[in-house]
Design a protein around this nucleic acid. Structure first.
Lengths: 330, 330
DNA sequence: CTGAAAGCGCTAACAC
DNA sequence: GTGTTAGCGCTTTCAG
C-alpha cells in the first residue's frame, strides 16, 4: 500500500535499520544521513504502519474506553474530551458500550483486549473482589472514572458524598418539612457497581442528620419511582416536601410527573437534581443541581492513562471540584 | 503474552499452517486433526492476535467513524447503534471527532488512515469535488451519513427536503400569516457541507409555495439568530407568526427566548423543530417536530460498510422513513 | 491432507 | 555510525 521503510532505505542507499533510527530520532546516526533520510521520507509522504509497529513493539497506541452508553449527556461530554486528549497525544480511541449489563461489560473488555489496547478507561458497572482480580489479570493500566472499583486503580471523579451532603445542607436552610430521596434501586448492590449512587445516598443521610433533621427521609429506589411518587400528596395537609434526586434525569422525570398533576415547583414541592446536564438550560423552572466539569474528567483520565502506559506510573489525581447551581426549583 | 498458534502447533505435533487451517475453518484438513486442534486451542484459551492478523492480511477489522461531536443527542444515539452493530459483527470502532472544523476533519481522517481502518463512516463537514477526490484517494469504502457528499458513496439519511415540505404543509393548514425560518448560516456554502440544511430550507420554500403562500418567509440564518428574533414583534399589530427551525436545538433556544419575553406558545407565536431529540420529552409546551430513527441510520451504515469491506459492494440503502410528531407548540 | 517457508512492515540486538 | 539479522504472530503459497 503505502511507502515502506525498506523503499526509503534503497532510495537512500542505506539499510532499513538506519532509516528506522532517523525516523524515530534514535541515537547512533549522523546528523547528515538523518537529515537526508528524513527529507526523502517527507517527499515520499511516508506514513508509518501502526499495525507493523504494534506487532514489533507490543504496543498499539490505542486506549480502550468502556462506558455504558452515550445517552446520558455527561457521557458525550466525557467522550468528547477523551477523544480530543487522546488524539492530541497520538493515541487512538476504541469505544465499547455496555448498556449497563455487567455480563456485556466483560465481553466489551475482552473485545478491547483482543484489540490489544494499551490501557482501559472504564466507567465500571461491575464491582467487587472478583472483578478487581479480573482487571488485574489483564496486565494493562486501568483508569476508573465516575465509579470506583478499588484502590488498585486511579480514580477520576468528585467527592460525591460531600457534594450531596452540601446540597442537602443547602436545602435544609429552606422551609421544607419532609424529604424524599430518589435514586436507582440499590438492590443491584452486589451485582452492579453503584458506588457513586451509594455515596450520594450516604451524603444525603449525613446531610440531613447534620442539619438537625430528626426524621428519616423517604427513600424511593423503586424502578417505578414515578409510580411511587404518584401515591404521595404534596398539598393540603401535607408537609412541604423537598424531592432530592440522585441525578438530573430522575429530577426531570419527576418534574414532568409533578407538572402533569398540576403541581407548582417550588411552591408546592421543591426538587433538586445532580450532574447539571446541559439540557437543563431549556428546562423551566430552572433545576437546582450540582455541577462538576465532566470534560475535565476526560482529559485527566487520558493524561493519567498515558503516564501509566509510558512511565508505568502516574501522579495521583485528586478528587475534582464541584459546585451547587442555584436554580428556581427548590 | 497470550497463547500463539505456534505453541498449539508443537503441542498438537502439527505445523502452524495446519493450526491456522483448523482455527479459521479453511479447507484442506481432516476432520479428525481439526477437532483435535480446536480442542487444544479451546483448552489453552487461545485468542488470536488481531495485530498480527492485520499485518498479514492487510485488514484491521476496524471501522472508523467521523462525527463532529457527540453533543447533539442524535449523534449519541447514532454512535450507540454503530458501536453495537459493529461489535456484533466482530469489528472494532475507532471514533474521531472533528468539532465542525473542516481542516480538523481531514486530520481526523488521516488519523484513521494511519490506523489502517477498513472503512470510514462519516458525517462529512467537508464537501465538493476536491474533498470527493480526497475520499476516493483513500482507496477504502466510505459510507456517508446525514450529509451527502457525492454519488460515489452510499448515503444513509432521510429525504430532508420532502420531510420539511410536509412539515410546512402541516403548519400552513393552521392560522399563521407570517413565516420565519431559522437555520445555520448558509454562507458556509462552499466551505462547509451543509447539504442537509440546504435541503431543509429548500423544502420549506417549496412547501410554502405549494400551500399557496405568496409571500417569502423571513429567513434568519444569522449566527446570532436570537438577536435577530428579538427585534421582531409577535403580538399587537403583528401577523400571527410561525417560526420554523431547521433543528430542535434552535427551536429550544428560540423557545427560551420567547418565554423570557413573556410570550405564549403557540398562542402568540408558533414554533416547530426538526429531529425529535430525546430531551424534548422534558420540554413544555411539547415541541412539534419531525422524527426519524437515528439508531436505524447507525445499523444500516454498519451493515452497508461491512458488505463493502467483505464483498466489495453493497445493496443500495433507501432513504429512511420520517414522521411528523404533533406537539403543542404550533 | 499436511509441512515448510516466505512474507506483512517495523524494531532491536548484535556485528562490523 | 551503519548494516545485518532475527523476530512480533499470523497467513498463504507451494511442495510433498
Amino acid at each position: 500500500m503505502g511507502v515502506t521503510i525498506k523503499e526509503i532505505a534503497v532510495l537512500c542507499g542505506v539499510s532499513p535499520g538506519t532509516v528506522d533510527r532517523a525516523l524515530n530520532h534514535r541515537p547512533g546516526i549522523s546528523e547528515k544521513t538523518k537529515a537526508r533520510i528524513l527529507k526523502v521520507a517527507e517527499q515520499m509522504n511516508y506514513q508509518p504502519d501502526y499495525m507493523a509497529r504494534s506487532l514489533a513493539k507490543g504496543r498499539t497506541m490505542t486506549i480502550g474506553v468502556v462506558l455504558f452508553d452515550l445517552y446520558n449527556r455527561s457521557f458525550s461530554q466525557l467522550m468528547n474530551s477523551i477523544e480530543a486528549a487522546s488524539r492530541q497525544h497520538g493515541y487512538f480511541v476504541d469505544l465499547v458500550l455496555t448498556n449497563k449489563d455487567p455480563e456485556n461489560e466483560k465481553k466489551c473488555i475482552e473485545h478491547l483486549i483482543h484489540r490489544k489496547v494499551d490501557g482501559i478507561i472504564i466507567f465500571a458497572i461491575n464491582q467487587g473482589e472478583e472483578f478487581n482480580r479480573y482487571l488485574k489479570s489483564l496486565q494493562i493500566p486501568v483508569v476508573t472514572i465516575c465509579n470506583y472499583v478499588s484502590d488498585d486503580w486511579s480514580y477520576i471523579g468528585i467527592d460525591d458524598r460531600r457534594a450531596m451532603k452540601e446540597a442537602v445542607h443547602y436545602i435544609c436552610e429552606k422551609r421544607y418539612e419532609r424529604f424524599i430521596y430518589v435514586c436507582p434501586p440499590l438492590s443491584y448492590r452486589g451485582r452492579t457497581n453503584i458506588f457513586t449512587q451509594e455515596e450520594r445516598l450516604a451524603g444525603c443521610l449525613e446531610g440531613l442528620k447534620e442539619s438537625g433533621i430528626e426524621q428519616q427521609p423517604i427513600i424511593i429506589m423503586d424502578k417505578d419511582y414515578i409510580g411511587a411518587i404518584s401515591q404521595l400528596d404534596f398539598v393540603g395537609e401535607s408537609k412541604t416536601t423537598a424531592i432530592i434526586c440522585s441525578c438530573d434525569i430522575y429530577a426531570l422525570e419527576v418534574m414532568n410527573h409533578l407538572k402533569s398533576r398540576g403541581l407548582h415547583i417550588p411552591e408546592d414541592v421543591g426538587i433538586m437534581g445532580f450532574d447539571n446536564i446541559d439540557v437543563l438550560k431549556y428546562i423551566s423552572p430552572a433545576l437546582t443541581t450540582v455541577e462538576y466539569a465532566v470534560e475535565e474528567f476526560g482529559s485527566r483520565a487520558v493524561q493519567c492513562m498515558i503516564e501509566q502506559i509510558e512511565q508505568g506510573t502516574c501522579t495521583p489525581v485528586p478528587l475534582l471540584p464541584y459546585q451547587i447551581i442555584t436554580g428556581e426549583s427548590i
